[in-house]
Design a protein around this nucleic acid. Structure first.
Length: 426
RNA sequence: CGGAAUGUGGUGUAACGGCUAACAUCCCUGGUUUGGGACCAGGUGACUCCGGGUUCGAAUCCCGGCAUUCCGACCA
């Protein structure tokens, strides 16, 4: 893509109504636009990153479930069945928008904050026999939660993207096997996104969902809201909320000897067991024709929050730094020249064309801007690799290649560059 | 939901209760410039968040909303 056709712009000043690193940098670089507290539009660059994150998640989820897309609107009645219409205080409900609608329908709907109430009846319709189990459905969708206090930019919003997966099983053992498999798949996702090394499976309370422990995926991050007790040797962590004496005794661990760190929860998994299947009277028929309880699990990852955490972890004083796997573009091609018909532009255009042909994702800064502005923008936008073409670089024998995250750069020939990026793959 | 702070051109800031609300940036015009947010000249753009009140006079003081941020509670 040509930067002259990228309709968003960078800005020097931080917005005064943002304090968090992720919101400041993503706004300054033109990735997001704030609509309200905790509600952000994904601008073209931001959408590219979000889509990449979601596609990574999608690819891994396809190994353990079927993707579907449920509705954001749901009927009140289904929430009444589980009693959660009253107990979930972040639930958002619609109202008839104006007087006119009073004559027609005064129906109000619940905006989905989670989808157990919707998926359970769906599974009930299709998975009624032991032959149909286990089954698992997932979706990636916009969720709504009326957080009492939205904060920290993308880390805690009122409208955000969420991948939610629900699994259905013949018994607790089968659920446990799947549950452990889901843990592994989750870690594969976080590894691919580039934060695996700092992400710990963390024992947490089950909340309203379960009397058992649930598991959170906590990424070390100062901007996070959670404190976790870290047992690096055994590669496990404990959410502060469960670090009481009873738990210590039950698990045979000593919390006082563990490191305490700030972290951000980027995913979680809950054994729901029969909580929701019972609410909907969802049973299956086993080999002998007997009705049996269905066991359920639910598994969430927040792509928007993940995006915010990556920013928080990798950014420096100059701007964003994206891991290659989720960067909006792979290469930032920059041309510096006063002469639009000169050699530098010709070479840059040639590289741009070759990259496009080989499907290398390139952002080409073809604008008539000063060198300083182009470099500053490039650092702010944070594409992992930068290629500069200028009269100076051509004199030295080619183009300058520089990684965003390191200071050093090198001059390579145009042929070497094209070989690096356009060699036939696999 | 409790507490605190802040609301002024698109953005960031300034202005003692008193002149036509100032500066920078962005944007537009013209010219110069091109390896780290260049320079010169000119220009567009604000009922100072909303509603009341005090005052001869309010961006400024008072009251009430609303919004945003931060601290806390909450986080199914």
């Amino acid at each position: 893509m040509r930067q002259s056709k990228l309709y968003t712009k960078t800005r020097k000043d931080a917005p005064k109504d943002e304090v968090s690193t992720n919101a400041i940098l993503l706004t300054r670089a033109g990735y997001i636009h704030k609509e309200m507290a905790g509600v952000y539009t994904m601008l073209p660059l931001g959408l590219r990153v979000l889509t990449k994150i979601e596609n990574i998640i999608r690819r891994h989820m396809d190994e353990i479930g079927n993707e579907l897309l449920m509705t954001a609107l749901s009927p009140k009645e289904t929430w009444e069945k589980t009693g959660r219409l009253e107990t979930i205080d972040v639930l958002m409900k619609t109202m008839p928008a104006n007087k006119v609608s009073e004559d027609k329908s005064s129906a109000s709907y619940v905006l989905g904050s989670t989808h157990e109430e919707m998926i359970t009846p769906i599974a009930q319709e299709y998975s009624r026999s032991y032959k149909d189990l286990p089954s698992a459905f997932y979706q990636i969708q916009t969720k709504f939660r009326n957080e009492a206090r939205a904060k920290s930019g993308l880390l805690r919003g009122r409208e955000f993207r969420m991948k939610d997966l629900y699994s259905f099983h013949k018994n607790a053992d089968d659920l446990n096997v799947y549950y452990d498999e889901a843990k592994k798949v989750y870690m594969n996702i976080f590894n691919e996104v580039g934060i695996g090394a700092d992400t710990f499976i963390t024992l947490a309370g089950g909340g309203d969902f379960t009397k058992d422990f649930s598991h959170e995926f906590q990424t070390l991050c100062d901007a996070g809201e959670d404190t976790i007790f870290l047992d690096r040797k055994n590669n496990i962590a404990y959410n502060k909320e469960v670090t009481d004496e009873a738990t210590a005794k039950k698990l045979g661990v000593d919390f006082t000897k563990m490191e305490q760190v700030r972290a951000c929860e980027i995913g979680n998994i809950f054994p729901l067991n029969t909580k929701f299947s019972k609410a909907f009277d969802y049973t299956y028929v086993d080999e002998t024709g007997t009705k049996q309880d269905v066991y359920m699990g639910c598994y969430g990852i927040g792509p928007t929050r993940l995006m915010g955490v990556v920013v928080e972890k990798f950014a420096d004083e100059k701007g964003l730094i994206w891991p290659e796997s989720i960067a909006p573009f792979s290469v930032h091609l920059i041309v510096l020249s006063r002469d639009k018909d000169g050699e530098a532009y010709k070479v840059a255009e040639k590289i741009y064309e070759a990259f496009n042909k080989s499907h290398v994702e390139v952002l080409f800064d073809d604008r008539e801007a000063s060198a300083g502005e182009k470099f500053a923008d490039s650092d702010l936008i944070g594409i992992p690799m930068r290629v500069v073409v200028s009269d100076k670089s051509l004199e030295k024998g080619g183009v300058e290649l520089k990684e965003r995250k390191v200071d050093a750069s090198e001059i390579i020939t145009v042929d070497q560059l094209l070989q690096m990026y356009t060699r036939p793959c696999c």
